Amino acid sequence: MMPEQKGLLSIIIVNYHSGNLVLNCIQSILDHHVAPNFEYIVVDNSNSHQDELMICNRFPFVQWVDMGYNAGFARANNAGMRLAKGDAFLLLNPDTIALDQSIAVCYQQLKAGNFCAAGVQLLDAAHAPQISGSRFVQGGLNHLLPIPYWGAFIRWAAYSAGSKAPGVQDVASEQQVDWISGAFLMVQRNAVATAGLMDEDFFLYGEEVEWCSRLKKVGQLVLFGNLKIIHLEGATINKSQNIQEQGYYNLYDRKGLQLMVSNHLRVRKQYGVGWFLFLLLNYTWGWLFFLLCSTVYETIRAANPFKQGKKVFAFGRNVARLWFLTPAIMRNKPRFYKMF
């Protein structure tokens, strides 16, 4: 890493064909806070000279880092952190909009408190609260919830047993969590020096959760509910992959495959082989359960029993690909799990 400069916040934004979003993001920060104690690092995964010219011409103070390939979230942010000079790093999505001086205040509160990382209240475009952080669920069992039919049954069983949702959507004034959304994740430099950088096996999804599990061994992670920022969830990846559905419940396309692989990879790294295999077997059974339940459901409705056949096939194909990767994931040797 570069030599540390006290009192400096390094803002790291990863660009992937999202030049206009990056422009709007940086401009929103400048609209509320024009100060010399921020440095801006844009790490480019798209090899887009057009985005570079557009962003650097408008904001010549931006440090532009060209990865030369689509390196994903972890590798790109690591490249930014290695170049950063601040005593804290802010990993900030390009599809975020600052509303006020929340970034500056978050930095001040982070440095003043006994925390190694901090987040804020994320809002959607309509200013409704989004999940900004979460508590860990043993073995990553929450990753079973998106499975069609089987996930709904697990959710019902969990709520019947008195379980509470782990995600924190309405943040208290100061609330400790196990992990913070990578859309806005501010980390103390000294905590990164102890816990290490993000795991570069990850391409996208799950990397900040695994990273936070290591950061949490260093110190406390906190959300500041009094600070807010807009997050246009999934805007960048959905646009680049021509995906209409937002959120993380679509398991039928390449984004769904990436989610499945990254979540299983995270569980393997954080909880071990046993929990990884437990999730994998549940996904396999979940595909069979999906096939059975969808056929019965459509038959009862006097509709085509194979009406959901395309989704059943697509989900099964992704499960098969996950099985193909299982030996490598279990060995836990360095490998870049890029599914896009």
Rank of each mutant, 00 (worst) to 15 (best):
M1A: 09
K6W: 04
V14Q: 05
N15C: 12
N15T: 11
S18R: 01
S18W: 00
G19I: 09
N20I: 11
L23K: 08
L23N: 08
L30D: 10
H32K: 09
H32P: 13
F38K: 02
V42L: 03
H49D: 14
L53T: 15
R58M: 11
F59V: 13
F59I: 13
F59S: 08
F59G: 06
V62G: 01
Q63C: 07
V65W: 03
D66F: 03
N70F: 00
A71Q: 02
G72S: 05
F73N: 10
A76Q: 06
N77P: 02
A79N: 06
G80A: 07
L83Q: 15
A84G: 15
K85Q: 15
L90K: 02
P94K: 01
Q101D: 14
C106D: 10
Y107A: 04
L110D: 05
K111Y: 07
A112G: 04
A118V: 09
A125E: 14
A125I: 14
H127I: 07
Q138P: 09
G140Q: 03
N142P: 00
H143C: 06
L144D: 01
P146T: 02
F153N: 12
I154Q: 12
G162S: 10
V168A: 07
V171I: 09
S173F: 04
E174L: 03
Q175G: 05
V177H: 06
D178Q: 09
G182K: 00
G182E: 07
Q188W: 01
A195L: 05
M198I: 07
D201A: 05
E210M: 04
C212V: 12
S213P: 03
L215C: 12
K216F: 06
V218K: 01
L221W: 09
V222A: 03
F224M: 08
G225N: 04
I229D: 01
I229P: 01
K239H: 13
G247R: 12
G247D: 14
L257F: 09
R266S: 08
K269E: 00
G286T: 13
W287A: 04
L288H: 12
L288P: 05
L291T: 10
C293G: 02
S294V: 13
V296M: 07
Y297M: 08
A302M: 10
A303L: 12
V312Q: 11
F315E: 07
N318W: 00
V319I: 15
W323F: 08
A328P: 00
M339F: 02
